[in-house]
């Protein structure tokens, strides 16, 4: 059974149709790369999955349960949306770390708030918070940032900030981790360290969706690739096949523009 099932998603911004009849699924442990030029709807698609945008049509299921159905308002209640979001982790293009918190606190804050709502929190407050802290430190260590746990975002390089953001997204153990152009805001010499971390996650069979402009990276790390253009999926298939031997003319044109630059 697929972890994620996306059915006929459609989204308009005013009169502009940004997504049209988007359907795909994702198996446990797979990495899916979404490629395409700017404005093709890749980011909007990720934002729909994370309930940051509301699709006009379509159904999204996780582990076989419908979590969003455009035709069924009962699936869109704000109180439940909050919990449903936790199926997905999101890493933003511009990091969006919380500037007033240290790297560690950025990673642990959401989990602390989530546990505070549980009835058993009051009794074991200290133990629970220590456990969350410990887990946060481990995640930062995995990102190669042990030394930076107590640094504020402004004291970190872009690459380090993005790695903190990845740790922050992992802290809540999402079923599916989404990356929205994770290296686009970085200086070229800093993209490597972030891509390396994502590659490591892929090797550990983390279920991921990566919107990216790094074609070689998509080819080597992703299992499948989706090429989007003007809001539709033009081509999808195994990563190496789509990127090295595209079947569609539009994919070929897009990829050749990358080969030139």
């Amino acid at each position: 059974m697929a972890v994620l099932d996306v059915h006929h998603i459609e989204k308009h911004f005013g009169p502009t149709r940004v997504l049209e009849d988007i359907s795909f699924d994702l198996e446990q442990g797979q990495a899916l790369a979404i490629i395409g030029s700017s404005g093709s709807g890749k980011t909007t698609l990720l934002r729909c999955l994370n309930f940051l945008e509301k699709p006009d049509k379509g159904v999204i299921s996780v582990n076989g349960n419908v979590i969003f159905d455009a035709a069924d308002p009962a699936t869109q209640r704000e109180s439940e949306v909050r919990k449903k979001r936790l199926h997905f982790g999101m890493v933003f293009q511009s990091f969006n770390l919380f500037p007033q918190y240290t790297a560690l606190k950025n990673v642990t804050l959401a989990k602390e708030l989530l546990f505070q709502e549980r009835p058993e929190f009051k009794a074991n407050k200290k133990a629970i918070l220590e456990e969350i802290q410990e887990e946060g430190r481990e995640l930062l260590a995995k990102m190669g940032l042990s030394e930076r746990a107590n640094h504020y975002p402004s004291q970190l390089s872009g690459g380090q900030q993005q790695r903190v953001a990845i740790a922050r997204a992992l802290a809540l153990h999402p079923d599916i981790l989404c990356f929205d152009e994770p290296t686009s805001a970085l200086d070229p010499e800093l993209t490597g360290e972030v891509l390396k971390v994502i590659r490591g996650l892929a090797e550990q069979k983390t279920t991921m969706i990566i919107v990216t402009h790094e074609m070689a990276f998509a080819r080597d790390v992703a299992d499948d690739v989706i090429f989007m253009d003007e809001g539709v999926i033009v081509e999808k298939g195994p990563a190496r096949e789509v990127i090295e031997h595209p079947r569609e003319e539009r994919t070929r044109q897009f990829l050749s523009r990358y080969a030139e630059s």
């Binding site: 919990k83 979001r85 999101m90 511009s94 969006n96 804050l109 708030l113």
Partner: peptide, 18 residues
Amino acid sequence: VPKGQQEAGQVLGMTKLQ
């Protein structure tokens, strides 16, 4: 305050008040 700050909180399952 950049909108991304609010969105980062949202995707981490925080309530509006939090």
